[in-house]
Simulated assay, not measured.
Amino acid sequence: MIWLTWRQFRVQAIVTAAALAALTVYLLLIGFGSRDAYDTGIVGCTPSECAAALQAFVHDYNAPFGIIGAVLLAIPALAGIFWGAPLVARELEEKTDKLVWNQSVTRRRWLAVKLGLIGLTTAAVAGLLSLLLTWSASRYDQVTGERFAALTFVARNVVPIGYALFAFTLGAVTGMIVRRTLPAMAITLAVFAAVQIAVPNGIRQHIMPPVTETVRLDAAAVSSINGLGFRGEGTGGSIHGYTKPGVWPLVEEMHLYKSDGSAYLIADAKPCMVMGSFEESMACTAGQDLHFTFTYQPGDRYWPFQWIELTAFLVLTLLLTGIGFLWIRRRLN
């Protein structure tokens, strides 16, 4: 049974191995290149040079690591569409199930070998590429400090393995239920895309209760915001883009309040708006004893989030596998 599965899967396996080898060489090259650029351009830089060096480093490596991250994001979807969806649906369409499942090998054993062998291959491909990308982009991730970013989080460390196994099993079970390859591929893509959108935008941030703290708008806070604005006369002011190193900010716009807790209005800001320069204006604002609330996920929760999300997708994979075994035994007669 293992030999038969290999015979049917060998073309996909060979193509995947060749693509993985090419990506490995590419990731090794840019990994060593980014390390050399980091050591020569950033390590030991003077304060006057560091800002430009960091900006140049991010500019040079943003596209290469972004492209590979997108490839890794697509691997689970491709596994679900091209490896999972046709697994059973193709047998049903071509009527070969009547021959395959009437041999000495039971249909459950047939499914177990298929899911096990191809599923492990899927997990190995996603895991190896994730490991290589995590190593290669380590200096880039250190500089940007955006490990929690949606596209970064799902393309590093252990989470891609969970996504890959889930997508492959989803495709296989969908093919069993739909009995047609093309509709199963379309449904698998739609469901997996919905999951990839829903998890980073609506679920991941609630895995653990976020931390909310009150921050004083002093000179240090002013230096790390992108801007201060008002929506209109009589409305409270707000700042944008404030964050702290290594954390995951959950709110982009934060309202400003005065020391007595009332909203900071445009009338309160006018004395600082007439200053000669932007720096003087912001220094004046920092001296008005203002504060805001900052909601975020701490940086030390990165690995707990990784393991929790991996576990969740492994559980979903097991549930789908159980549905597949029940369906192939009771419904596919």
Rank of each mutant, 00 (worst) to 15 (best):
T46H: 10
I67W: 10
A123G: 10
V125L: 11
T46K: 12
G84W: 02
A51Q: 15
A77L: 15
S130Q: 03
T46G: 10
A70V: 13
K98C: 08
G69V: 03
N62E: 14
L132C: 05
I118H: 07
I81E: 02
F65P: 00
A137I: 06
R107K: 14
G44E: 04
W135H: 08
L132I: 04
Q103R: 13
L133D: 01
H59T: 11
A89M: 05
G84H: 04
P76N: 05
D97S: 11
R108D: 14
W83M: 13
C50M: 14
T121E: 12
E49Q: 12
R147C: 02
I68L: 13
F57A: 04
Q142A: 13
R90M: 11
N62C: 06
S138Y: 06
A51L: 14
L131I: 09
Q103Y: 09
L128A: 08
W101M: 05
Q55E: 13
L115F: 01
L117S: 09
F65A: 05
V105I: 15
A70T: 12
T46P: 05
F82G: 12
P86N: 11
T106A: 04
A51K: 14
T134H: 03
S104A: 14
S104G: 08
E146S: 13
L99K: 04
K98S: 15
G116Y: 09
I75Q: 07
T96I: 08
D97C: 05
S104F: 09
V88W: 04
Q142S: 11
H59F: 11
A56W: 09
Q55L: 10
N62M: 13
I75L: 15
G66A: 09
V88D: 03
H59G: 09
F65Q: 03
G66M: 06
L131F: 14
G119H: 06
T122E: 06
L72S: 08
R107P: 08
V100R: 11
E93N: 02
G66I: 09
W83Q: 11
T144W: 06
D141N: 14
H59Y: 10
G127H: 00
L87D: 13
A56E: 14
A53G: 04
T40P: 07
L78K: 03
K95A: 13
A85P: 04
C50I: 15
P76A: 07
W135S: 03
D97R: 02
T121I: 15
G127N: 00
W110A: 13
L73K: 06
L73G: 14
L115T: 02
S130D: 06
G145A: 09
E93H: 01
A70I: 13
K95F: 11
A63I: 14
E94C: 09
Q55P: 00
R107C: 07
R107Y: 08
A112N: 02
W101N: 03
A53T: 02
E93Y: 01
K114V: 08
I118M: 13
G127K: 01
L111V: 02
I67H: 02
L133H: 12
Y61R: 02
R90T: 10
A70L: 14
V88G: 03
A74V: 06
T122F: 02
A79L: 15
W83T: 10
V143P: 03
G69T: 07
L111M: 07
V43L: 07
A85N: 01
